[in-house]
Simulated assay, not measured.
Amino acid sequence: MHVRRASSSDLEDLVDLCLQARAESGVGRQLCSDDRALLRDQLAVLASVPDGVTLVATCDGEPAGMVLGRLLGPGLLSGTLVLSLDAVYVRPHQRRRGLGHAMLQSVAELADAAGATDVYAAPLPGSRGMQRFLARLGFAPAAAHRTVGTGALLRRLALDVPAPARRPASRGLEDLIERRRRARARAAGEPERARQTGASMSMQVSRAVHRRLPSASSTTTS
């Protein structure tokens, strides 16, 4: 049993391991592409960059497992360097032989040498064995990831039109107080207007009656 950094001669074996992990996981493209040529190019780039982590594990000289990851940070959201594991995989017939433990031992030593304060792992949904294995080694939940296709997201955004913003509750309360104030002002003004209207009507009636009365000096003779 041996764990070492992958070299260019290990690329085809790593591609095989990635495709086997993809088929076993059931989440398809969330893990990797199914295009061998594309996978080979991606793995070659990961192995060549300074912050890339590509480990291959062999058992009796046969490729049996792999670790793929990256050293990340410091960045905007973290002030420390961390080692993020994208994939930890052991072939089914090579499991329960200590290979996963040996690979994580190499990961821990690499992280310590690089000055990484934490090791992150994102086991695939449904991989209960890997979940239990990581929990046994002290890995605790840190965050949850969600994924959506770009096309599906664009369609949902087009349908999910935001509703018009409601006025703040405080503004609605101010409007209610103002309406009540105006109503009270109108109610207080009604008696005065009624009195003025009644006085005006009395004067008009008095004038009309006065015009229609007969003159006191008028007489008739036979």
Rank of each mutant, 00 (worst) to 15 (best):
R155C: 01
L31V: 12
V161Y: 00
G198F: 06
A113R: 15
R91S: 06
H145M: 07
A23E: 15
L46P: 03
A185W: 10
T221H: 13
G65M: 06
A163C: 01
R95H: 05
S48I: 03
L14K: 03
A121F: 01
V107I: 11
L76F: 12
R96Y: 01
A111K: 09
A158L: 08
V45Y: 03
H2P: 05
R182W: 03
P92E: 03
L83A: 07
E24Q: 15
A143G: 00
D60T: 11
L137W: 05
R97E: 10
H101M: 11
M103S: 09
R132P: 01
V15S: 09
Q94Y: 10
R156P: 00
A121P: 02
Q30H: 07
A199W: 03
L55V: 02
G100Y: 02
S25P: 01
S127Q: 12
S127R: 08
G126C: 07
Q131R: 13
A169L: 14
F133T: 11
L134M: 10
P125H: 05
R4Y: 04
Q30Y: 08
A87K: 09
S33R: 11
M103N: 07
A142R: 12
L85K: 01
H210W: 03
G61L: 04
L38E: 14
V205W: 07
V45A: 09
A199F: 03
A216T: 11
D10C: 02
A87Q: 13
G98A: 08
S48Y: 01
R155V: 09
G189C: 06
S217D: 15
R181Y: 02
R171A: 10
R95V: 04
Q196V: 10
T219I: 07
R97H: 14
E190L: 15
P63Y: 12
E174V: 09
A187N: 04
F139T: 12
H101N: 06
L137P: 03
R4W: 04
R181A: 10
L39G: 01
A152T: 15
H2T: 15
R40E: 10
T219H: 07
R166F: 00
D13R: 04
L110A: 12
D10I: 03
D60S: 15
R22G: 01
Q196G: 14
L83M: 12
S202E: 14
S200A: 13
E62W: 02
R179V: 06
M66P: 10
E190F: 02
P92M: 00
V119N: 08
A140R: 15
R96C: 10
D16N: 13
D112M: 05
S215V: 10
M66N: 13
S25Q: 07
R179Q: 09
A6Y: 03
P214L: 09
P50F: 00
V49S: 04
